[in-house]
């Protein structure tokens, strides 16, 4: 356990009668990129929200560097400050400029001075190549730009691990690339990440391990190489096949669009 940044141990979660998670366990090591994928409704987003206790699990434990989140003595806000989160719909603070969206965490949660927080925020914006947009409000930014600010907001807290909840699913196809590029850079710099995504290209290039979840359980796990050459379970095979079909189709569509433009 000592070398794991994050340990997820037998997580169960239900909403009323509906059992969403049924015993999920895995470890995330330092600098590891873990990709979680599976059909919609399989509990991926709930899993991420259980990991930082936004939705406390009904059963099971989460440890961040050995500290048990469910422990009554644990200050959950302090722990959350060390777990970054990036959202499908960005969830930027609409009344704050990009720089303030990023600076407010370091200033109000970590207790940095205003100047220090802004400096740190500027560094984070530079990291995602958004420094030129620092003084813009979210409504003045494209989806891809907003998501990069969302990533900078997580980065500025210098978290131990960052959770990505389908970060490109709400983006127009032509904006996905810039966000994926930032995530690829982060992965290559050694950022510890848990990424829920259907972007198999991303998974292929940087995932250390992929976890396929369906109906609240881990059906299969392995390296990208394993999944893209010889997935064992029928469900994973079917799902990957569907993704490929869909991805191929949209790729085709993109190409015809480009052709028409030309």
């Amino acid at each position: 356990m000592s070398d794991a940044v994050l340990r997820v141990e037998n997580i169960w979660k239900s909403f009323g009668e509906l059992e969403v998670l049924k015993g999920i366990s895995f470890d995330v090591a330092e600098s590891e990129v873990k990709v979680i994928f599976g059909p919609s409704g399989s509990g991926k987003s709930t899993l991420l929200r259980c990991i930082n206790y936004l939705d406390p699990p009904d059963k099971g434990d989460v440890y961040l560097r050995g500290v048990r989140l469910g422990d009554p003595d644990t200050d959950i806000n302090k722990v959350r400050a060390r777990i970054g989160m990036v959202f499908q719909h960005f969830n930027l603070f609409t009344h704050l400029k990009a720089i303030d969206n990023v600076a407010i965490g370091p200033q109000k949660v970590l207790g940095l001075s205003k100047e220090e927080a802004r400096e740190r925020a500027m560094d984070a914006l530079r990291h995602v190549k958004m420094e030129k947009w620092a003084e813009h409000y979210p409504a003045q930014l494209s989806g891809g730009q907003q998501q990069r600010v969302g990533i900078a907001r997580a980065l500025a807290m210098s978290p131990d691990v960052i959770l990505f909840d389908e970060p490109t699913s709400a983006l127009d196809p032509e904006l996905i690339g810039e966000v994926l590029q930032v995530m690829l850079d982060l992965a290559q710099e050694g950022t510890t990440m848990i990424v829920v995504t259907h972007e198999m290209g991303f998974a292929k290039s940087v995932a250390d391990e992929m976890i396929f979840i369906d109906k609240g359980v881990i059906v299969e796990r392995g390296t990208p190489h394993h999944f893209f050459t010889s997935p064992e379970s029928e469900r994973a095979q079917q799902f990957l096949h569907k993704l490929e079909e869909l991805y191929g189709q949209s790729e085709e569509k993109r190409n015809t669009l480009v052709d028409r433009d030309a």
């Binding site: 930082n52 936004l54 806000n77 302090k78 722990v79 959350r80 400050a81 060390r82 777990i83 970054g84 989160m85 959202f87 719909h89 960005f90 969830n91 930027l92 603070f93 609409t94 009344h95 407010i104 965490g105 109000k108 949660v109 907001r153 807290m157």
Partner: peptide
């Protein structure tokens, strides 16, 4: 939006801080 509240809590803000810095100003 609920999403902004979740984002604030995920940053480690307390419920009170979330109100003061995020929800009420808007």
């Amino acid at each position: 939006s609920e999403g902004q509240v979740i984002a604030a809590r995920a940053l480690g803000m307390t419920g009170f801080q979330t109100q003061i810095y995020i929800v009420l100003p808007q």
